[in-house]
Structure formats: structure tokens, C-alpha cells
Design a protein around this nucleic acid. Structure first.
Lengths: 196, 196, 196, 196
DNA sequence: GATGAATGAGCGTTCATTCAT
DNA sequence: TATGAATGAACGCTCATTCAT
């Protein structure tokens, strides 16, 4: 006998199953039958929860991006909030590489699926803004080089994170050395100001 | 009437067709019938040139990585060789975004296909070494911050390029601002030395 | 409109269709699409009932061997049970030559398919034993020449039946003359005993 | 460099290769590419020797039946010629089981290919006649029971041989016990005559 | 909501055959 | 003779989806 689950949790189980399959096999390896069987239900029942494969995929994207939320450091206004953000992200890459791997799959998938593209674009816009905000704060305390404008800087930060996610083993040191570039520049800048 | 092509060119046509399909549709959208018809031959003839789909995929990977070779700036020993490399790569992302998109597809695909993984690993090791070598030169002329060791630095450079390839529109400015971080750090460093 | 059939009967229909195709075309001529269309369903539905072609083939083998069961004379202990068995088998060859033809196909196929081989070996061992048992009874009543041991005799009987199945038109007279060999030997034996 | 072979020997090599493939894999497993590569030539060259697959198959049948010729005991008129024939055939089954296995494949194949059927029918008619002739001689010397007419007897002999060919391991003892049936009947018969 | 049966498009691959060289 | 390239039909099998129960 299968355990009866609360209304939404069967849906959640399906999304999680799909998430892990995409992480392991990529979009090429995503088969609804396998998703359903991982969630312990018949493959035709899956269609009661998701009208089509694309619906499930969209739900997986939502799930993947939400992985960040619950653990995101909230103190956005702190001078070290950029550092905290980078630390958080590089830890995510190390501890849960699947999350970033799946998101990279979605980045590439976005060009082929308008629905995915819309979600990705919107989420990324939000991320970019928040990073830019943290950069602005960091800039005021000498933790970000002022000659690099926050918007482009946010783009660079995002690129470093995405790039690092392809190499989870070295992601931590890689992000750390990126931060060295920022901080030493700023420190020096500060000391110059102090000297003058 | 069958078209007659020089030996090998049919094969090349198939590889190029597959390359562009992967760029547009991803691995999920790669169908041998479509590849063959794009190359103007019957789909069963494709198997005369490539034993299996995996063989074709491996050939596409070789093709994609070779896209860099012919246009790579050769002057490796120049002090600005790192800058030239970065400029070259960011231009590639802008001018031929497909090449990097396909390579990102392969990065993700590598985890699922040992043959692809082997090629990717080997090529990337070569790239990493060459970048590290350029970094060492740059470090001697103050174009690279000496506190960041060349090996980790190469990793960082690669991450920036890979990350930038997801955003071709802003790749140029993004890479440029990354270089600003390097140069200004070094410049300042230099001026410090001069001051002392 | 889809036809609705009682559960299992679709499966049976597929097995029977495959059986008759093998009888007519041999294993070389067995195509799943043809099997499915003979059973009135789409060829992909066949895979809902049989995971693979080999599964279907195994089911056909079970079906073919079961053709004997329902009509097998049960009175194994009767002195004439061997005769009844031979009569039954030669009638089968005449009336339903396909059954034996398919079984000969399986005999040859067994060397190439371990699953088929296992089933064939097991069934044949059972057959051999039952024939040997009937021979033992026949021997006690002078209907089997005692100088031929029942195990080898069973082998001989099976060989005669298999050989006869290649020539359905003359199978009856052929088996009959084989029995003449047995009976006359025994009769003579008996008369010898009587004389002594 | 391939050795140049005399005109017919390449053809022979193809036929032999096909023969052994049929023995091992059956008609289902017979692929011209494999035949050609076993004979050391390109698969399209095979079509210079055999117009079609059916032509090759017909040639294999000729080859298989000819396997008997060179070693067939010639002394047809000897009283023991039937015994010699049976001994020869059962030895063939033991020593070269492939020959009989292939012939059984052809027996079944005959129903589907008129050309094969014609050859088989003709060869078998010849065989049947020769066996009947030997039986007639044996009958005159008490080595065949006179109440079984030579034509039907030939059929029985052929059936025994065909049936035995499915079980090469026991073919020898099986044929031997068949002969016991014949000889003892006759011997007894003879002794009866002597007694009377 | 859950299931089993069914569908149809399509996939990678095979293979006998043809043809130009 | 021999080969490599090409063809087209067909094969076993997959998979998202539909539908009646």
C-alpha cells in the first residue's frame, strides 16, 4: 500500500524526482516514466499533477531557484553583505553542486523554451539587482573598487559564480581569489586616500 | 543524381550540421535524421561516416574546440598575452556565441559520457596551462596581481569566460571590467613600489 | 473506437499471432509490427504486454508446448499408453503441423537464446521421463523390446517424432511402421517365451 | 595485401563462411556483411559473386548437401550397406553436427523459399531412393524386417536421422538402438526360419 | 486521484542492394 | 574484381500523451 500523501506533497515529490534526474542525466535524460516511478506513482498519474512535460520542467525551475531562498543571508544592508553572498554561493556550489548544475541546464534550455526563458530572465534580473545593491554598499566601505560600476559588476559576479559552478572542487578557492582582487584593490585605494 | 563531394567533406558537413543543431536545440534536440538532411544525405548514410551517435558527438566536440585554434593569437611570450587572450575569447563569445554555447553543452554532457569527459578534461588541462603561463608573464610586468597564484588565477579566468558565455550581449564589458580589476591592482602595486 | 477485450486476451492474441507467423515465416520472418497488426493493435502497444521481442518469443514457446497438454491422454498406467502417446503425437503432426514446425524452430533457436534453451531443456526432460515411464510399462506387457533400455528408447521415440514432424504427409504411416518394429519384436519375443 | 585466390575459391570461401554463420546463428543471423568480412572481402564485392542473398543461400544448400558425397561409402550392393549408411550418418552427426543443423534449418526454410524447396525435394528424393535400395538388400539378408515396406522404411530411417540430429550427444546410441530393433527382429525371424 | 491499455510519431540502427570509380 | 558511398525500407524500441475505468 502506498502512503497517502497530503495534496501538494505528491506534486513536490515529482518535482524533486525530476530535479535530480536533470541533475544526473540532463534534459536529454528526463523521462516522465522515470520521474513518476521515482515518486512512486504510475506514469499516467503524473499527468494529473502536470498537464505536460513542459509544465513539470517549469515547476522544476521554480524549485531549483527556490533552493536559495530559505538559506539566503537576509542582512542585505551590512557592509559585508557582498562577501556573505559570495561565500554563500560558493558554499552552495560545493555542498549542493546539483542545484547549480541544474540551473546551468536551464540557462541553456532557456533559449529553446519561451516559458523557461521568461522565468529565468525575471529571476536573473532580481538577482542582478540584489547583487548590484550589495556592490553599492560594498563600494561605500571600500570593499568594491569604485571604478567598476555596480551594474556591470553584478554581471561579472554572476559570471564568476556561473563559471565556478562548472568546477565545484575548486569553486571555493576560485571565488576567494576573486574577492582578493576586489578587497585588495579597495584596501589599497583606501590607504591611498588615507595617505593623501 | 547524387552530388559528388571530395572525400571527407561529407563528414565535415555532417559535423557542422550537428554542431549548429546542438547550438540551437541542445543535445536533447539532436536527431541524426535532421543532421543528415541538413548535410543533404540520407540518414542511413550518416552511419557510413559515423558508427554511432556518440561517435558523431565526439567529432562535434573536436570540431568545436578546434574553432579556437586557427585564430588564436600566437605571441604567447608578449607581456600583453593574457590581455590578448581575454580579448580574443570575449570577441569569440560576441561574434560566434554558438561555439561557447555548444562547449557549455559539452561541459554538462561530460558528466554523462566518459568519452566526452576524457576529451574535455584533456583540452581544459591544456587551456588551463596556457592561461597560467600567460598569467606568469603578466605577473612579471605588473599586469597580474602577484598575490593570486597563476594556477588558481587560470581557474578564475576560465570561470569568468565560461560565465560570460551565458550572456554574449554583455560579455565584452564584463571581461573588460574583470581586466580592470587586474590591471588597477597591479598598477597601484607598481606605483606603490615606485613610491617606496 | 478501441475494441475492449478481457484482460489477458490481448496478450493471448499477440502470442497466437506470433505463433502463426513463426510457423509460416520462421524466426527470420517474425516482425513485431506484423504480430501487432495481426492482433489488431498498434505495434507500440505490443511493448505494453511484452517488454521485448525475446519476452514474446518465450511466451510463444510456452504457448506451443501447452498445445499438447489439454489433449494429452491421461491414462499413463495403461499397457497401451505408449501406443496412445505415439498415436496422439502423430495425429498432432498431421492435424496441426504448425505446432511441431514451430517447436523445431525453437529446437534450433535454443542454441542461440539461453532463455529458450532453458525452457526447452526443462520441457524435454519432462517429456523424456514420461516417455520412458510409458516404455517401462509397455516393456512389462511385451509391447516394447526389453533389450532396449527405456531411457535410450525415449530418446529414440523423441527422435522419430521430431524427424516425422518434417514430413507431416507421411508422419502417420511412418510412426505406425515404427510401432510395428516394436510390437513385432515383442510379439515374437512373447511367442518365444510361450514356446519355451 | 590480400592473397589473390583462384577464380572459384573466393566464391567457395563466401559459401563456407555463410555455412558456418547459419550453423551458429541460424538464418536469422545471416548477414551478408558478416559473410563478406569472414571471407576477407568488402561486402559489396560479395554481389559480384552472388547476385542476391537468395543466390548465396542456394549455394550454401548445395555446399551442405555435398558434405556427404566425398565420404559416402560407395559399396551400395553389400548386405550391410544399410548399416554402413546409418553408421556413416550418425558419425556425421557426432563429428560434424553443423552439417545436419544447417540442413534442418534448410528443411524449415524450404517452406518459404521455392528455390530451396526444389533443391531439397530433389535431393531428398534421391536420398530416399538410395535408402530404400539399401533396405531392399538388407531385407533379402534378414537385416530388415520384411513386413515394413522399403519406401515407408526409408521414410522412417530419414526421420530417425533427422530427429537424432537435434541431439548430437546421444545420436550414436540412439541410431544404434534403432538398428537393434531392425536386426533383432530379423535375426529372430531368421532363427524362426531355421527352426522351422 | 489513480491505473492500465492504447496510440502515433519518431528514434538510432541495420541491412540488402546499387552505383560510380 | 574490388571498393566506398549512398539509398530506402524496415526494425525493435521509446516516450509523451490520451482515455476509459
Amino acid at each position: 500500500m502506498k502512503k497517502k500523501l497530503a495534496s501538494g506533497s505528491r506534486r513536490d515529490a515529482l518535482v524533486e524526482a525530476a530535479f535530480y534526474i536533470i541533475a544526473k542525466e540532463g534534459f536529454e535524460g528526463l523521462r516522465l516514466r522515470e520521474v513518476a516511478s521515482k515518486a512512486g506513482i504510475d506514469h499516467s498519474t503524473l499527468h494529473h499533477h502536470f498537464h505536460s512535460k513542459r509544465d513539470l520542467i517549469a515547476a522544476v525551475l521554480e524549485y531549483a531557484t527556490k533552493q536559495f531562498r530559505p538559506t539566503l543571508p537576509a542582512n542585505d544592508a551590512s557592509p559585508s553583505s557582498l562577501h556573505e553572498h559570495l561565500t554563500f554561493l560558493s558554499r552552495m556550489i560545493v555542498d549542493r553542486p546539483e542545484v547549480h548544475v541544474v540551473l546551468r541546464e536551464f540557462d541553456l534550455h532557456a533559449t529553446r523554451d519561451a516559458r523557461v526563458r521568461a522565468i529565468i530572465t525575471e529571476r536573473e534580473a532580481g538577482w542582478r539587482e540584489r547583487v548590484a545593491a550589495r556592490i553599492r554598499i560594498a563600494a561605500t566601505t571600500g570593499l568594491w573598487p569604485p571604478q567598476i560600476d555596480p551594474t556591470t559588476g553584478a554581471e561579472l559576479v554572476i559570471a564568476v559564480i556561473k563559471g565556478a559552478s562548472f568546477n565545484p572542487k575548486r569553486a571555493a578557492e576560485l571565488v576567494q581569489s576573486f574577492e582578493q582582487l576586489l578587497v585588495q584593490t579597495s584596501t589599497r585605494k583606501t590607504s591611498q586616500k588615507e595617505r593623501s
